[in-house]
Nucleic acid binder design. Sequence first.
DNA 1: TCGAGCTTTTACACAACTGTCATATTTATT
DNA 2: AATAAATATGACAGTTGTGTAAAAGCTCGA
Lengths: 236, 236
Amino acid sequence: MENKCVLIVDDESAIREMIRVALEMSDIDCMEAGSAQEAHAHIVDHKPDLVLLDWMLPGASGIELLRRLKRDELTKDVPVIMLTAKGEEDNKIQGLDVGADDYITKPFAPRELIARIKAVLRRAGQLEDESAIDVEGLTLDPASHRVFIQQKPVDMGPTEFKLLKFFMTHRERAYSRGQLLDHVWGGNVYVEERTVDVHIRRLRKALQTDHIDYGTLIQTVRGTGYRFSTTGANVA
Amino acid sequence: MENKCVLIVDDESAIREMIRVALEMSDIDCMEAGSAQEAHAHIVDHKPDLVLLDWMLPGASGIELLRRLKRDELTKDVPVIMLTAKGEEDNKIQGLDVGADDYITKPFAPRELIARIKAVLRRAGQLEDESAIDVEGLTLDPASHRVFIQQKPVDMGPTEFKLLKFFMTHRERAYSRGQLLDHVWGGNVYVEERTVDVHIRRLRKALQTDHIDYGTLIQTVRGTGYRFSTTGANVA
DNA sequence: TCGAGCTTTTACACAACTGTCATATTTATT
DNA sequence: AATAAATATGACAGTTGTGTAAAAGCTCGA
């Protein structure tokens, strides 16, 4: 599985370095930013999985940045843990009010930091849409992470599952192999486009039963890619 | 029966000590926290049976903590009694609004405190599902803290029991190892995720008998985690 | 302080899944 | 009908994730 990426925002590079060491011990990838501006640019740019934000940035801009992040639709879902020095306790609460997901007081034990980061990451990951999707007897249930054909569970690999989920939430529309790679495989992976064909094939196969063949819902759009459609196949 | 554990949250250690003495007279275990932050960490970590929370923490964070606790799925079920000083009576109402289970005005008689605590614990205790859960001949009885297969008692460790209880009360849904750690181990414990595998293994083993193998009810969701399901796995 | 009973970690084997290729098969074009 | 282009299919090997057992660590009570 891909590592989580945490952005460390602190003006003291020594502290950043210390935190980085702690996190990398736990297989968490780190990026660093020394100022609020730098941090903001990075967040918009790379969408880290979590931001560790020092309250005491020069210009008291830590809380400013937090507020700004939470105001913007694009960044409001990025979890933030505030770092506060002892004696700034009042600020913690303010931080929470503005939407920090947790706070931790310096100095802290690396273990505790890791534990909190993991806890926040875990909770953040849970927020996805979980209601089942049904198409003519083909049901995909994100909660149980399963697919059913007429209430009967169907077996398929993780990639096929994600692929089908994407299709069922984006029907009646053709996607190129490249787009599918982006959406299903996720951004920066280098994979042959032909690989998509293979997974389409596997998915179609999995959707076949003795009685019904739901594989035909995934239609080939020659020269373009594929499309999930409930209206029978037709000519271009 | 195991003693109940109450977390006392107050910034004055003298008051904490006084309360502690009173509670321990009644065989109630106590933990203490002097700040909202400390308290939150403790609650997530150890899930006390009840929290005695002073409204007047530095930074007026008592009410904040309460709000935070009630917002988070993991902690919303922990009962809270608010401690308010005379003259802050208006706050009581606010506290109740946010979800406190009761409130007490300082100064209070120890007898009264004990009485209220017991009342809240009693109420909370009743909410716990004490009725046995049965799935196709596999029975878990929270009251006796035992598991039966066709009326025959089954042996397993405490963690396996909690794990099974969680699964049986949360069926047909995939949980990541991280989520299982959150729910079964409790909050911020810092444990390898692979540890879950081992307990799953032991639980599955415990659920096997000469005749039936209930271990298969716990299904592996590759790349995701595990799921308790009564709809059998299926053919490829 | 020691030991029993659990829990957690570790290490390795194994099975499932993935990505790629080589080879059919289909579709479009002339 | 022949040819070119694109997709479908089956097989293979490398990779990843999980199962399993055994060892190391804890905890609590005698």
